[in-house]
Design a binder for these strands. Structure first.
Lengths: 343, 343
DNA sequence: TGCACAACTGTGACCGTGCACATCGAAGCG
DNA sequence: CGCTTCGATGTGCACGGTCACAGTTGTGCA
């Protein structure tokens, strides 16, 4: 059988057709599970495919019907735990749906890089785009370039709302803040994420909302960069004044740096300062002290993201994306009532 | 200009050609930077492209010349810091080289999942495959499926050597082990990675080699799963005997869990037990105590990986991949001489 | 002036698949 | 029994590029 194959070229449906004694179109129908193919015919074709190791040519397919079956993922900071987990879930979901995933990593956040990355994805003729851990500028680019494929993002932004799926970051931040207030803290700092980040903004909003609702006076949040390193140096700065008893950090890594700084200053967590994080990375349970934090289900987020995107690609009834994923407070050892000394 | 475009279809080179008053082949040549195109012609064509927002169709291109310009990345545990960093670097390098990156995530490590993921990538007609954080089974699958495109992996395996690029994991592990021995430790445990993992094996090998070379008797390494959680429980088990003064953990996360367990037992790191990790994740400097570890340059690894792969795709002179990246010992606060009590 | 040669551009086939439409035989039905 | 309907299959072309090859100029040189 195989000897009948022309050499030096992968078998095409016509080769398969010839060997199976049918037309290429019949082979095509077998490939696409067309209903009206006689079982015996189908079996024969499948057998030949097996024999010659036939693999459909995706490029030809895409060219023929204009569907690339590829979705693009635009990710900044893809090496962080949260985004990376979501990406993995997205890939699984995509593969399950028969889609391919093309990644574009954003090393810098200047408009040129963003446009370059989007152009890269568009030139792939992706059918949809997922924006991970988005920054405001990405949306500017998205609007500016008049991207004509569906896209979703994983955070709430206030605009472009039809494209948004999101963990309720605001609720999560309120949860964290409320926990601190409930413990008796009044002098609470918020170490936020970078200014440009939408999720940082949402968490900050949640913090401020809750503080306001509980009638606790607030100071301006400090803008960080998500890294433990920044948390450490920010902590050292903050400890020069020590006018607080608790810090709500916008992610777990910065919380780790804060703990380090507090301990370096000879103080105790949570004895002198309570610290709460956000995300619940797997390591958080093993920090010292184990970190009180807010858990987000990144994988579920990724899955829902894909579901939303796929439904808007295929124009099915849209899934209800307003069903936000509620984050969960995980109380561990890094928070406690304020020390009497401070009261 | 734009009004001359037929509606409902993206402009093709023939549309551009017509509007620019040239043949479609000339447009193609402009696209591919063919040298012999008159500058004025080129400018005219480019202008028309701009006007009609022409975007080359990648599928058609791939179909025409059989080159997909796509490379596949097969990654297990893509949400870990190391692999994720390498992946980001790979994506950057690929984009720079004009390649697209297709990801396949490996959620499970059974042969079926591996084959499914590889099939997925192959059906994309990728021109090359990068295997990240590979396990032995992945290689079995690679051999078994007779993958006919170049592939590289990021760890040394002993077989398939022409495809391998690697941080010298063995040297790194020896570095870590030597550091402990030099401090005076003799009773050293090794908490290794999962059995199936090639890099876990290499680190274990390095540990055993160095122990042997320094004539220190060893006990059998404990096989872990890379997580802090496992490190914690392994640590608790180990502390029931306490016949050691130092532990070399195969990665930083498990080291974190170990520290947690040691402290839970009322002991001090490094006073009672020295702990050294591997990888130098960004958080390691802010553990308590800051973790002594071995740094790997994941990004550089990713870049070299792509360089190797691209050179074997284009059949250029191969880069010298034997120029392994040497890991670096980072001494922080989690290691110290053994306590007199133990001597 | 003629000729070789390079620079530049055009023509038509082809890549592998899906689609629209045609065909053909068998079954259903009045 | 002829007509319709439907299931199963075949025919030819389109998709948007690239490739091989074939012109068509212009230029240098004998």
């Amino acid at each position: 059988m195989i000897s009948e194959m022309p050499p030096g070229r992968a078998p095409s449906i016509r080769d398969v057709a010839r060997l199976a004694g049918v037309s290429h179109q019949t082979v095509s129908r077998v490939l696409n599970n067309h209903p009206s193919i006689r079982d015996t015919t189908k079996a024969r074709v499948l057998q030949v495919m097996e024999d010659v190791h036939y693999r459909p040519n995706r490029a030809a397919r895409a060219l023929g019907n204009g569907r690339s079956r590829t979705i693009g993922v635009l990710s900044a900071s893809g090496s962080h735990y949260g985004p990376a987990s979501s990406i993995a879930a997205i890939q699984d979901a995509a593969r399950e749906a028969g889609y391919y995933v093309n990644m574009a990593n954003l090393s810098a956040v200047d408009p040129e890089s963003i446009e370059a990355a989007l152009t890269h994805l568009m030139s792939q003729s992706v059918e949809g785009i997922v924006v991970i851990a988005p920054q405001v500028r990405v949306f500017d680019a998205l609007e500016h370039m008049a991207i004509d494929v569906p896209f979703v993002t994983m955070q709430s932004t206030g605009r472009l709302d039809e494209h948004t799926l999101s963990v309720d970051q605001i609720a999560g931040a309120r949860l964290a803040t409320h926990h601190l207030i409930e413990l008796g803290h009044r002098d609470i700092y918020h170490l936020a994420g970078p200014q440009d980040w939408i999720e940082a903004e949402a968490r900050m909003r949640g913090f401020l909302d809750e503080m306001g609702a509980m009638d606790v006076p607030t100071t301006a949040p400090i803008l960080g960069d998500w890294t433990a390193e920044f948390g450490y140096y920010a902590g050292r700065e903050m400890l020069r004044v020590r006018d607080f008893t608790a810090i709500f950090s916008s992610n777990d890594q910065m919380a780790l740096g804060l703990i380090h700084a507090v301990r370096d200053a000879g103080l105790d967590v949570p004895g002198d300062v309570s610290i709460i994080g956000f995300d619940d990375i797997p390591e958080a349970a093993h920090f010292w002290p184990p970190l009180t934090t807010v858990r987000q289900d990144f994988a579920e987020l990724g899955r829902r993201c894909m579901a939303l995107l796929l439904s808007s690609i295929t124009d099915d009834q849209p899934v209800d994306y307003r069903d936000v994923i509620t984050p969960e407070l995980i109380v561990r050892g890094s928070t406690a009532p304020p020390s009497p000394y401070f009261r």
